[in-house]
């Protein structure tokens, strides 16, 4: 089980909403959001995914002073990049118990779930791995529960991540 703290900040919500192309003022305009049914700024439905910014062990963020698998002088900074480019996302599910708001400090707990294998349409083996992540507020109340399924193909996939 992995656990870390995710502080929900207004600036981060603004940047995230922009990045998913959503101009809804509920994500950035305190005045308009204050007059709405939810009474203030909230985060977009998939925002908890950005908690990875605060995950100390997140493997898809370069670490200062360590080799990174993206390109620099060579196409990859590591001698043996993962075949097929590593893990891809197969499914994502969220359950919402209340909206996230700036000022929330969430405790993020992730536990591994099932794993299973399938043969892809082009014959490669696909290994699926599930993770369940809970986001709880300072009072210990569950705010969001997420279930993600990742797939690790043996070779580059083309439309066969399922």
């Amino acid at each position: 089980m992995e656990q870390f703290t995710f502080p929900v900040e207004a600036g981060h919500i603004l940047l995230f909403a922009r990045s998913v192309g959503d101009p809804n003022p509920i994500y950035h305009d305190e005045e308009q959001a204050g007059k709405s049914e939810v009474g203030g700024i909230i985060a977009p439905p998939t925002f908890v995914q950005a908690a990875s910014q605060y995950d100390p062990d997140y493997h898809l963020r370069p670490r200062i002073g360590e080799p990174w698998f993206g390109s620099g002088r060579t196409p990859s900074g590591v001698s043996e990049p993962a075949s097929g480019g590593g893990r891809l996302h197969a499914e994502q599910h969220f359950e919402y118990f209340r909206p996230l708001r700036p000022g929330d400090v969430l405790t993020v707990t992730s536990t591994p779930g099932k794993t299973w294998e399938k043969t892809g349409r082009r014959g490669g083996k696909l290994v699926f791995e599930e993770h369940v992540t809970e986001y709880r507020d300072a009072a210990g109340e569950l705010v969001v529960r997420a279930r993600g399924v990742g797939v690790r193909p043996e070779k580059p996939v083309e439309q066969e991540a399922n």
Binding site: L15, G70, P75
Partner: peptide, 19 residues
Amino acid sequence: ASGDYNPLHTDDVYAREAA
């Protein structure tokens, strides 16, 4: 914004030549 810097999504050289 999300923190997912997997170079498959942002690094064309990596995506083509390494992956």
